[in-house]
């Protein structure tokens, strides 16, 4: 995917960014606009829409372009749009296509190589807001000093299979070992503890490209009344059970839910586990083949890989 493996675009590095811009401009021939990133004063890039060549001048791609822009696509179904996508984002687009939420004919994909996104928030937490961050995709300098880049990569990129230096292990959650050493009873307590911090902001849902029900989500209805309106550990647990249930066989593991969580609930532990189980049961990974039948919307009379008897 993309061009020049290992290359990394940073504002000011003229040739590669110009390449990105020209691709955006090219896509605008057909696309109404292109979803991408623009630089902000804060030092971290922000999502943006480019409607014309002039706006495309502001396009960037750097190691702070952490968002999965595919989340916007289901609401743009009736438009032809372009989108700048990392490999994880592309899997979400493929899965949306498999679920007929995206028409691949109407999405102009601009693929970019991703070196793994850096965790600006945690760097600032450790080094202070003013510390300068320079990253070329292979070496990271914080406050003008060399830093171990892999240590400051966002959680969702650590296990990445598609970038150089990624662990190639999508379930590589920092808390994984701790979590799997616990008994079922301990895990319940672990979750209840984490869930007690939930402020029910729905950021996990909003960041998820596969949660496209939006205003009819069962987390906010009384018919059906699966969940109450309270902000507490029990309701938060139900919220996550709903989310995990709804993502079965659909999640490409982009990690946006956990990254978006303002109170740091390790949501990807459950998601990774489910993705692992789905692969174990059905040999299926979401977002790989837009023609593949999603495992929970199909069945095999003769029994599946995991077949019981």
């Amino acid at each position: 995917m993309g061009t020049g493996r290992g290359r990394f675009y940073r504002k000011g590095q003229v040739p590669p960014v110009s390449e990105l811009k020209s691709k955006i401009i090219e896509a605008l021939d057909e696309a109404e606009f292109v979803l991408g990133w623009t630089a902000t004063g804060s030092g971290a890039a922000a999502p943006a829409r480019f409607h014309n060549a002039g706006e495309a001048e502001d396009a960037v791609f750097d190691s702070t372009c952490v968002h999965n822009l595919a989340v916007q696509l289901p609401r743009l179904k009736d438009k032809t749009v372009g989108i700048v996508a990392k490999s994880c984002d592309a899997r979400s687009i493929v899965q949306l296509a498999a679920e007929r939420e995206v028409d691949l004919e109407r999405v102009k994909l601009i693929a970019v190589d991703c070196p793994g996104m850096i965790d600006v928030k945690s760097i600032r937490r450790s080094f202070g807001f003013g510390a300068s961050i320079e990253d070329d995709g292979t070496s990271l300098r914080i406050a003008s000093a060399e830093a171990e880049r892999e240590e400051f990569i966002v959680a969702k990129c650590r296990g990445c299979e598609d970038r150089d230096g990624g662990a190639g292990d999508p379930g590589n959650h920092p808390l994984r070992e701790k979590f799997y050493s616990m008994s079922a009873v301990e895990r319940r307590a672990f979750w209840r503890d984490h869930y007690s911090r939930c402020i029910r902001c729905y950021a996990c849902r909003e960041a998820c490209p596969m949660c496209f029900c939006r205003d009819v989500c069962i987390m906010q209805t009384r018919d059906p009344h699966w969940i109450g309106g309270g902000v507490n550990s029990a309701e938060a647990e139900m919220m996550q059970l709903i989310r995990v249930n709804h993502l079965a066989g659909r999640c490409s593991g982009c990690g946006e839910c956990e990254r978006a969580c303002p109170v740091g609930i390790p949501l990807m532990l459950l998601i990774d586990e489910q993705n692992r189980v789905i692969q174990e049961m059905f040999g299926y990974r979401a977002g790989i083949d837009p023609e593949a039948k999603p495992p929970l919307l199909s069945f095999n009379i003769k029994g599946d890989i995991w077949e019981e008897e």
């Binding site: 079922a184 009873v185 301990e186 895990r187 319940r188 307590a189 672990f190 979750w191 059970l241 995990v244 079965a248 532990l269 459950l270 586990e273 489910q274 189980v277 789905i278 174990e280 049961m281 059905f282 495992p295 929970l296 069945f299 095999n300 009379i301 599946d304 995991w306 019981e308």
Partner: peptide
């Protein structure tokens, strides 16, 4: 005809996920 085939997949997945949710299988 097919109801329990769908159920079989859903229920087996659930059975395998319960420990992660913190419920003894």
């Amino acid at each position: 005809n097919d109801g329990n085939y769908y159920a079989r997949r859903r229920l087996e997945l659930l059975a395998r996920m319960l420990p992660a949710f913190g419920i003894a299988s």
